[in-house]
Amino acid sequence: MAPPSLLQGDIPVRSWIDRLPPSWGPYCRLMRLDRPIGTWLLLFPCWWSTALAAERWPDLWLCLLFALGSVVMRGAGCTVNDWADRNFDGKVARTATRPIPSGAVSPRQVLWFLAAQLLVGLLVLLQLNWFAIGVGAASLLLVFPYPFMKRITYWPQAWLGLTFNWGALVGWAAVRGDLDWPPLLLYVAGLFWTLGYDTIYAHQDKEDDVLVGVKSTALALGRHTVPALWGFYGLALALIAAAGWTAGLSWPFWPLLAVAAAQLVWQIRTVDIDDSPNCLLRFKSNRWFGWLLLLAIVAGRVW
């Protein structure tokens, strides 16, 4: 996150986007291209599952397809979110500079841009086998309702977990053309992982959420957040271990999984739910957890 002097609301300035033609900037910011952590969090379950399903090394072509698909579909999800929140964002100083409330783009332009992103996502999906195409297309049933969950339930992070970890199913399906216990266990593990990291993230926004009347696990859990994180991350690790066991990963998986687990423990032991920069740093650190777990799965498969 840029320091306060380099922010307009919640949008970083003086980033590489500012060097693009002015007409491109709002669309890049709709996709959050200047904040790639969301793309990593969407991508890792795809890569984990692809590696878990592999005979030895994960398929590089599939990994590249999932990388492109994650950029586009994360962008589409953020675009849907901004369109759905267009009447809320203008009421909060932190989000008032986003492309729609600031007037940089119109809601109609946003919908056309969303259609273009979905078309690119479809083209990526069509490179997979038919079973994986069906599994991937089913994710849209989760993507579009997500922006409205924070108006309905205090657990929108659970819906995000269901959505962001769908790649754990698609990755396996793309390699093997079916689904089995390892990807299902990995998918549920991802749900609890997301509950943890997005609850930490939501503590940055709790005052604004109260102001505009939306809900989050940060508000639901309050001072019970840290004990809940032990539960969320503990369940995630147990289910990841079960996925590795049922997939038949060899012994290097286990010590490397312990290293990944230590990263989650560090998050819990050092988080300060009343310090926004602290929460953001721990949220972003999940990229390292993603890499460590990927290394563990690949090592357990290749050894």
Rank of each mutant, 00 (worst) to 15 (best):
A53R: 15
P145L: 03
S49Q: 09
G134Y: 15
L239R: 04
L160V: 10
G121D: 11
C63A: 06
V110K: 01
W181N: 04
Q263P: 02
S285E: 07
C279I: 10
A189K: 05
L219C: 11
L123N: 08
F44Y: 10
L119K: 04
D205M: 12
G121T: 08
L111D: 10
W130R: 15
V120T: 05
A262N: 00
G103M: 13
S23F: 13
D208E: 15
G25R: 14
D85S: 08
A202I: 13
F88Y: 13
A260K: 06
A93E: 12
M73D: 01
A220P: 05
D10K: 05
C28A: 14
D198Q: 14
A54P: 06
L293R: 01
N286G: 10
R108N: 12
N165K: 07
T199V: 15
N87R: 14
L111A: 09
A115S: 14
A53D: 13
D272P: 05
A243K: 08
A189M: 04
D205N: 14
A115K: 05
G167R: 00
V212D: 12
L186W: 08
R282N: 14
G248N: 07
F131G: 04
K206E: 15
A51I: 08
G103N: 12
A76G: 03
F113C: 01
E207F: 09
Y187W: 00
L114A: 03
T95W: 02
I297F: 04
W266M: 06
V226N: 13
C63D: 01
L20R: 02
Y233C: 00
P227L: 11
A174V: 09
P12H: 11
A299F: 02
W61L: 05
W291S: 02
V110E: 05
Q263C: 01
G75A: 09
L30R: 04
G300Q: 02
V212P: 11
A299H: 01
G222Q: 12
